[in-house]
Amino acid sequence: MVTTEERPDRTESAELLARARAGEAEAYCELAQASETRLFQQAVALCRNPAAAEDLVAETLVEAWKSLHRFDRSCRFSTWLYAILLHRYQKLVRRARSRPVPLAALRPAESSERESLLERSPDPRPLPAEVLLQKELSAQLQEAIEALPPKFQQVVRLRFYEQASLPEIAGALNLPLGTVKSRLYYALENLSRMKSLVNLFKLPEDT
């Protein structure tokens, strides 16, 4: 009944990383290219807008290059990049909320979003009902996660969207392991009590 941590194989090359840390831009570009597509997909899942996602990925990769000396290999390189992406995304959301322009301006309407995704998709066939349903569930989950405080969002996304282990999350966010554990618990606790998710996934309500 006790589960173990899933730790995917480390794909980043130690040699490339050492060269990049020594200041070799080519080595860093090679290293970052391996994570670029996944990072972009994660950014699209966050922003739901490919143009905004591209900006976010570009900012993230440049920021990662500037602070590469802080990467201590306590987590995967891709996890570290995703943590930077999340940080920048939350900054973007905070900035957008503080402006008079509504946040909706960053996100196009559902139909145009789907069209833009279809244009870029390698297989642009009409989406079957199951996929649409999955998209609906995904949108509900994203809304629920975004209702959490930012510190809980980071832990939930790193755990479930990056499949990072708890020590990796602690390394990526530079937090003690105990803090990561309690944040993950409180995030799940808050999510499980949200009415929208209780109805959506038929979660049994507490008595």
Binding site: T37, A45, S138, F160, Y161, L191
Partner: peptide
């Protein structure tokens, strides 16, 4: 809840940069 989150995390949009 965790299963749904994991499933959602694995179903990233299949888009290429």
């Amino acid at each position: 809840l965790a299963r749904e989150l994991t499933q959602d995390g694995r179903n990233l949009p299949s888009v290429e940069p």
